[in-house]
Nucleic acid binder design. Structure first.
Lengths: 134, 134
DNA sequence: TCCATGGTTCGACAATAGTTGAACCATGGA
DNA sequence: TCCATGGTTCAACTATTGTCGAACCATGGA
């Protein structure tokens, strides 16, 4: 588990609420495992333009949470955190502590989504046209 | 959000034989045109298992509304009508008067959806597994 | 014309979701 | 150790959705 800094591919953390010696910053938040990803929750999470905007920013790879913002909006942090929570609990993104510095790393769970609902995430993300307006 | 109270009442107390164009049953409900179909609304409409169940029944072709019921549920008709409304207003289905008999005909707007959001509707419908449960 | 059928809409309420200030928490650096 | 940073959670509020009885409407048939 050394080296390989930001490629959390394949394995699901499936973190229990176990007693952990916190080496990394911030709490470890619960994520559904691949099989637990629910279609209704995913569709609902993606039904919001703001949440989709964040997801779109993760298409090219993981991002620090601080850098992931819908269109430079000065969104209150509580609001942003809530949006991320909806996406995370739906299984759309991973929200893990950044092992390097302060803050967190967001990742689109593309593999898991693709395995569970083939074609869905691509269809949604490529469907997003700016003219749609909502 | 209900500004669609477009009444066909007070039709014509006018004298003389008014030629009636459409001898179909029930009101003509508003549908978004293809370009007006909004991704957020579609995803939201499909984020409910009950609504998805109805959509799935329309995969093989149009159905009389009376025949389109999620799993034999004795759903109150107001509730069912509301579910259909959400799907219709999102542009997922068409809800037209039945020209033959009483009642209405429901159609999945597959072509429109496919044109607007390629692959999306198929991904959603084929993703639906019975294990999901919610 | 009256009635049953199939359906929409209204209205009221319950339940869920969104927003956001404030409190709190952990880390890294001075 | 104290502080700034980046972030989650709490709590309270608002807003949107869901549910469903009742009212209403149009049609077809007796």
């Amino acid at each position: 588990m050394d080296s390989e800094t930001h490629s959390t591919r394949g394995a699901d953390p499936a973190p229990g609420p176990t007693v952990r010696d916190h080496a990394a910053s911030g709490p470890e938040l619960p994520h559904p495992d691949r099989a637990g990803i629910d279609l209704s929750q995913v569709l609902f999470a993606l039904s919001d333009p703001g949440r989709r905007a964040m997801v779109r920013q993760l298409q090219d790879g993981p991002l620090e949470a601080a850098a992931c913002t819908p269109a430079g909006t000065d969104l209150p942090k509580a609001t942003k955190s809530h949006m991320l929570k909806v996406l995370r609990e739906a299984g759309v993104i991973r929200n893990l502590p950044n092992p390097q510095r302060r803050g967190r790393i967001l990742t689109l769970r593309r593999d898991d989504l693709e395995a569970r609902f083939p074609g869905l995430i691509d269809a949604v993300l490529s469907a997003d046209s700016p003219s749609a307006g909502g």
